[in-house]
């Protein structure tokens, strides 16, 4: 066996790990709803990657077509399925909904990724510290978490945007600030239970330093529940972003390709409240896009929870 190279050893280890993921995947696909959820999520991710290229132009800004064939369409949106140029119709301001949806997928997924993953990272680090070290530091972290969890998040984001100005960075930072505490809580709870496992003690007995123990044993074994939370939070963040944009707390112009912004076009100033009656597609299509995505994420998250639930494993 000594003749075997390190490369083959590596590939064997990799194969083994793939095999175990395959098993998890099997359990995931046993639930039809979770499978549908996963498929839809993958579809959206593909949209986000290739969507902006399909329609061309600036990937985060929608092109305005105030006039189409000599007709002013700023305030008279075109219905869907009638014009090849606007497959899903247009909305107030002369923006193509098709273009908005595709570009919005990229923008929304990008923003949500930054926010959720930063939040998860901060939360994991703080949660591990609070769980493993405990004591005064842990107590301080957890009380901080409590404070942030008790703040109404939209209000906080609105306040930040009002005080520090309407910039992309301010919005992202304010949302990260809102999103880390959940992860801290989850990770701390996990760490507290993993810490008591014998393999952690064995590692300490083998002379492993605290940092090494945390990185090698504790985090890998306590991180799985946060994947579920990430998948659920993706939906929440996208909803929150949409809400903020819908409420008008934007950092970009009216043509910014974000689903909430696209939705808010239909009811923007000057059109009154009659959007749903006069041009329902401008409201329902972006709304459905958001709804389906969030629903799919939730279904997938639930399925993931079942797979990662220790009771499901043997």
């Amino acid at each position: 066996m000594t003749t075997e190279s390190a490369g083959s050893e590596f590939s064997r280890a990799l194969k083994k790990r793939l095999e175990s993921s395959k098993r998890s995947f099997y359990f995931l696909t046993r639930s039809p709803l979770a499978t549908i959820g996963l498929a839809v999520v993958i579809f959206y991710v593909i949209l986000a990657i290739i969507g902006p290229k399909l329609v061309g132009g600036n990937p985060s800004v929608m092109t305005a077509y105030p006039i189409y064939h000599g007709q002013p369409i700023i305030f008279n949106p075109l219905p869907p399925f009638e014009y090849a140029k606007f497959p899903l119709g247009t909305t107030i301001g002369g923006y193509s909904i098709y273009e908005g949806v595709l570009k919005g997928a990229r923008v929304d997924l990008e923003l949500a990724s930054i926010i959720v993953f930063s939040g998860a990272l901060i939360g994991t680090v703080l949660g591990s510290v609070a769980g493993y070290k405990g004591g005064a530091i842990g107590e301080a972290i957890m009380r901080g978490t409590d404070i942030f969890l008790s703040l109404p998040y939209i209000v906080l984001a609105v306040a930040f945007l009002t005080v520090f100005g309407r910039y992309e960075s301010v919005m992202i930072e304010s949302l990260i600030l809102i999103w880390w505490p959940t992860y801290t809580r989850i990770v701390r709870g996990q760490v507290l239970s993993v810490r008591e496992q014998k393999y952690v003690e064995a590692s300490v007995a083998a002379g492993s330093s605290s940092l090494r123990t945390v990185i090698k044993h504790i985090i890998p074994n306590s991180i799985y529940p946060i994947f579920v939370q990430i998948s659920l939070d993706f939906g929440n963040v996208i909803l929150t972003l949409a809400s903020l944009f819908y409420l008008g707390f934007t950092f970009a112009g009216p043509g910014f390709a974000e689903w909430g912004n696209l939705l808010s076009r239909a009811t923007s100033a000057g059109t009154g409240g009659a959007a749903l009656e006069s041009y329902p597609w401008a409201v329902t299509i972006p709304g459905l896009v958001i709804l389906i995505f969030v629903l799919a994420l939730n279904l997938f998250g639930d399925g993931l929870r079942d797979v990662l639930d220790p009771r499901m494993r043997r």
Partner: peptide, 8 residues
């Protein structure tokens, strides 16, 4: 519990 379940 004495062996890390995620390690080969």
């Amino acid at each position: 519990s004495s062996l890390d379940p995620r390690m080969l």
